[in-house]
Amino acid sequence: MNEIWNYIIENQASIGAYMLEHIQLVGLSVIIAIAIGLPLGIYLTTNEELAETVLQVANVIMTVPSIALFGIMIPILSIINHGIGFVPAVIALILYSQLPIIRNTYVAINNVDPHIRDAANGLGMSTMQRLLRVEIPNALPIIMAGVRQAVVMNIGIGAIAAFIGAGGLGVLINQGISRSNTTMVLTGAIAISILAIVADGLLGILQKRMTPKGFQQ
């Protein structure tokens, strides 16, 4: 334990930089993933046929092991000279985030109590008003749960992305293994785990805050 502590103190600058890289990678991908997944999930509630297809595809993507997805993307993205590094990592993380975000958005909006929807129509809201003022606020806790799931998962996959040169805390594990430096590997593993647990906790609090008061159990 002491060794790890000393290692962290000695290398705090570089560890901090890896941590920041990791957060950037995950943050950027999740923001883009929400920008795609949220509207798509909402649209899918109006087209059941397509919803089935999209969710199936998202399911299949989720089944593809992350290191294998990187392996498949490298040859393809090499064509545009981005085989390794930040770009394939971001693309992979966006792809993996789609299932939890789209699925939860779709399910949450579909599950809004029909009576509430009826009431909104009865009050004379337009489709857009109803969506923004009634459906999304009611669906928000479940959508947030999807985002939370995506973030935690992406922190883990982001660690693997270090092997294709995307940086982040995975670098500590990668280099630690190749130098047989156990302390370095341990530091990396613990740092990634803490990042994931903290992110999960924070988003859990946010999710609770977003739950309308009258809604909490």
């Binding site: 092991p65 294998a68 990187f70 392996g71 040859p75 090499s78 092997f163």
Partner: peptide
Amino acid sequence: GDWIFTGIMMRDNSYLLSGAIPVTLLAL
């Protein structure tokens, strides 16, 4: 994973895909 990581290190598409595609198919 042997072949996938070899592929990454050597930037060799043959190793990459010969490892990655079977793993993917196995999972599916």
